[in-house]
Amino acid sequence: MNFRELIKLRPDLAFIAHWVRNGSEVLDLGCGDGVMLEYLQSDKQCLGYGVEIDDDKIPLCVNRGVAVIQQDLESGLAMFADNAFDMVLCLSALQMMKNVEGVLRDIARVGREAIVSFPNFAYWPHRVSLLRGRMPVSKSLPYEWYDTPNLRCATIKDFEELANKAGLEVLECIALHEGKPVSVLPNWRGSLAVFRLRKKIAA
């Protein structure tokens, strides 16, 4: 898979992919159908593992030639050694976790750098929805309150604090909308929050 194909398929992932260096060892937590890893393997010569819980996604990863390990992220990343990866990706998966802090600590343990993305709850249509007295339902939060897998609602401002607590330093934070970065009023106009993080070095 080349960059054009990725942009067409997933513009958000295409934006994030430029942060991953060629030849990196990558762990993709909640890798879904494996499209990101397929791209990183074929176009950037990365060596990667995906972690995914959904039965239906496992054969899709296999079809893409992605080495996927079926596992619940909540049960921890004991499978992976400390500092085993140059880059840990956790893209649009963290908001589904019960133990968000635990997962972030594990990310800090197994990886040197990480990219974490999640739907920005402070995206302006969500705010408008709440002002009207209703839970937001949008392209980035496409579920009703009673059937959403998204247990955690966070805003761009919220996340940095927790990342720091979990041992991760924020290198960069970008708000994306439709796969394009939003520079003016990002916490209002960005539907997807993307953080580039680095393991904090103990002083």
Binding site: E25, L47, Y49, D55, I58, C61, V62, V66, A67, V68, I69, Q70, Q71, A78, M79, F80, A81, A84
Partner: peptide
Amino acid sequence: SREIVQALVNNKRRVTYAEID
């Protein structure tokens, strides 16, 4: 099975693991 997968990951082998419920 996870012990085997972990040992293979330690060796950077390409490994796919399915845990069927």
